[in-house]
Design a protein around this nucleic acid. Structure first.
Lengths: 214, 214
DNA sequence: GGCCTACCTGCCCTTTGGTTCAATGGCAGT
DNA sequence: ACTGCCATTGAACCAAAGGGCAGGTAGGCC
């Protein structure tokens, strides 16, 4: 059972958090990085109220201050856009700050197992948006990769950086590079950009360019 | 605690299911609709082995036979495409049929709370695919760039390195970088990979649309 | 037991990519 | 003549990507 740290601007709010995790630590925000850094393995619950500071930035700062910790965002006014932003920034969970304790524990269990938690609403949108063009992904190529390599390769094909991938998969950046190097080798490409083109099934590399210079 | 009903063609398989839910009911598949109908509130675990019958259809049949019940799909050979298909068809969960009891209970808990469960791999793809598109629905795209910037951007979108572009356009590598920096700025992307995705029309449905009308 | 593969990571290095702070010259419009 | 945009480039710099070497775990197979 990991430790739970709630970062918030209003420490007095939301007794539901304590109901969910009696042994949770409540820290005012902003917090000194050092305080977070030595907290070890923990789940950071980042409470965002307004959009004054960019939520995505807050996530990245928190992740930076507490390396190895999963960051879950609690929003007062959840929206799909905000959820998308924080998840892209490396958060592994996004939910309503008023969620009942049961749901909070649920989220905690999921992220502890290396999962990602998003609400039903956002999830539906993700699925709907993806379904329309899922056929374009090149799977013959992906079959050549191991499970982990495939995960990394797909993230790269989506435009993610090594750091982001490491954060999402809870592995070191070095390991991401290792998987990528293996993927490049197996698929016969030289870098992440060509990997992206291959996976996304796009016209042969440099074809567009050739047209412009012929 | 809801009831758990496992639908499978091979009732003898997978003791892990019973380990996860000792009080589960195992029903051979296909099942008479009536038997399912009177089961009341339950979670239907639909075990699919091959792709002989369309998994998506099976989900819809099950959902029809047992109204109000959540349907979770267990696949012997999980793939992102299959997952996408069954989730679209109305399933609220998709995971490996060999998943350990802990994960199964995890899934059950999530769907009982009205959540949707997808595996990390598929989730990764959903996020990666969706994330980059948040921001630019306005695709003036290449039109926003100067002639030279467009040339360089297209070359990058095709997978070329700065050095290659410099050589083929007969300019210095430094100039290539200058054009690229300008292009990133104008298109609102952060690096060459995202530029590639944007230009190639992957990030946004709107981009696809623009391409088809012009 | 060895052997293989997948997976994970450290340290350290080179290469590439990207930016900052400049400068120069052409070319069009007012 | 002045202003603005564009193309071009250098030097220097920092960050990201990629890979070599070395090591660790864990599981499957013979």
């Amino acid at each position: 059972m990991k430790q739970h740290i709630f970062l918030t601007r209003r420490p007095e709010t939301l007794p539901t958090w304590n109901a969910a995790f009696p042994n949770a630590r409540l820290m005012p925000y902003p917090t000194s990085d050092s305080a977070l850094a030595k907290s070890g393995e923990a789940i950071i619950w980042l409470h965002i109220a307004g959009d004054k500071p960019d939520p995505a930035l807050l996530v990245q700062e928190s992740a930076l201050a507490a390396p190895g910790c999963a960051v879950v965002v609690l929003s007062n006014v959840p929206s799909d856009e905000e959820g998308l932003a924080v998840l892209e920034a490396g958060a592994v969970g996004y939910t309503n700050s008023l969620a009942v304790p049961e749901v909070l524990r649920q989220v905690a269990a999921v992220v502890e197992n290396g999962g990602l938690w998003v609400g039903p609403s956002l999830m539906q949108r993700l699925i709907a948006g993806m379904a329309t063009r899922s056929g374009q992904i090149n799977n013959g190529q992906l079959g050549k990769l191991s499970a982990r390599e495939r995960e990394v390769a797909l993230a790269v094909a989506g435009g993610a950086s090594n750091k982001e991938i490491a954060r999402r998969l809870q592995i070191s950046e070095r390991t991401v590079k290792a998987h990528l190097t293996a993927a490049f080798e197996r698929l016969g490409v030289r870098d992440r950009l060509q990997l992206s083109l291959l996976i996304n099934g796009l016209p042969s590399p440099a074809a567009e360019f050739q047209k412009t210079v012929h």
